[in-house]
């Protein structure tokens, strides 16, 4: 991996990080009604309270001074209090929720990638056949299915009607675990439907891209050489598949944000206690400090995931080395 590539990507990471901080700082301040007046309207506070709130939030100071204070509190974890969950601080709330979102995201990214790429390889290998048509058509169909709709349907069918899986939460309420294995089993049991809902709505793009790359690769000379050498079909397919796997990896880097989007909706449907469900709650309760912090955390997750995917990509593809 070349150094300049790493430096370039790191600079971009820092710029994007800074922009997200700036958005988070500016949004509550440039929108009509500052945080103090919004809070006052919401809870019918007297004017004196608004004044002391403005003082507390330092809204009467110049913007530059506010920004420095904001940066300081951001990096020291002083993110204010949640309106809804007062006296829990926003920082505590986010830290409680983040592990669940990371678990859901990590698991679904893997299943989405595996399912999407596997189907794409099969469709590309059997291009022009009914198998190809069926895989491509179903991919186009699920591409436009809203996450929350599939989640609602799964919740109803597998949860309410069949009773196979729990319909909400990440753990059985009030459960006492005899061993770590029991705990893990309960976590996985609650994770199944959300992951399934995300996987089945998000795999399509990977399938379509892998299929098209596969078709491209199969028309290249080295495949013809393989065939001429009399290699078994299985080996030729493997050879082509290995070369068709890079574009979906790039796609994972670009589209990890979409899986985050899927997590927001799916968590909402299943009341899964992650950052995504927290966003929904904060919208409903106009809990702006929490909304901002949740956005910040999700954005951070995505840019870090993108950065990691970039690094993996540069390790996988030798050509990236020569990039300036």
């Amino acid at each position: 991996m070349s150094k300049s590539f790493l430096v370039k990507r790191s600079i971009r990471l820092i710029i994007v990080f800074f922009i997200i901080i700036l958005i988070n700082f500016l949004l509550p301040r440039v929108m009509p009604g500052n945080p103090a007046t919004i809070l006052a309207n919401e809870y019918q506070l007297p004017p004196e309270a608004v004044e002391s709130l403005e003082e507390l939030l330092k809204l009467d100071r110049p913007l530059s001074e506010q920004f420095i204070a904001y940066l300081y509190s951001l990096f020291t974890g002083q993110w204010g209090y949640s309106y809804k969950y007062y006296p829990t601080t926003v920082f505590e709330l986010i830290m409680q929720r983040l592990p669940w979102t990371l678990l859901l995201l990590g698991t679904s990214s893997i299943t989405v990638f595996l399912m999407g790429v596997a189907l794409g390889i099969v469709a590309g290998w059997r291009r022009g056949t009914r198998v190809d048509a069926a895989i491509t058509f179903s991919a186009v169909l699920v591409y436009a299915i809203p996450y929350y709709w599939l989640a609602l349907t799964f919740q109803f069918v597998f949860g309410n009607v069949l009773g196979w899986f729990p319909i909400s939460q990440a753990l059985t309420p009030g459960a006492v675990y005899n061993s770590v294995l029991d705990y893990i089993a309960d976590v996985l049991w609650h994770l199944t439907l959300p992951v399934l809902a995300i996987t089945l709505t998000a795999y399509a793009t990977y399938t379509l891209v892998t299929r098209n790359t596969m078709v491209d690769v199969l028309s290249e000379d080295f495949i013809m050489v393989d065939a001429a050498k009399g290699l078994p079909q299985r080996k030729i397919m493997w050879h082509a598949a290995r070369n068709a796997i890079l574009p979906p990896v790039t796609l994972l880097a670009i589209r990890i944000g979409h899986i985050v989007g899927g997590a927001v909706f799916t968590e909402t449907v299943f009341s899964y206690p992650g950052v995504g469900y927290l966003i929904y709650e904060s919208i409903i309760f106009k809990d702006y400090p929490v909304l901002n912090a949740a956005f910040f955390m999700l954005a951070l997750t995505v840019i870090i995931a993108n950065f990691i995917a970039d690094l993996i990509y540069s390790l996988l593809d030798p050509r990236v080395k020569y990039e300036r």
Binding site: I23, G257, V260, V264, A299, I303
Partner: peptide, 15 residues
């Protein structure tokens, strides 16, 4: 390049 790196859905939601 930078727009592509900013996660759009969370930002669309806050906006």
């Amino acid at each position: 390049d930078i727009m592509l790196s900013i996660p759009s859905l969370p930002l669309i939601i806050v906006l």
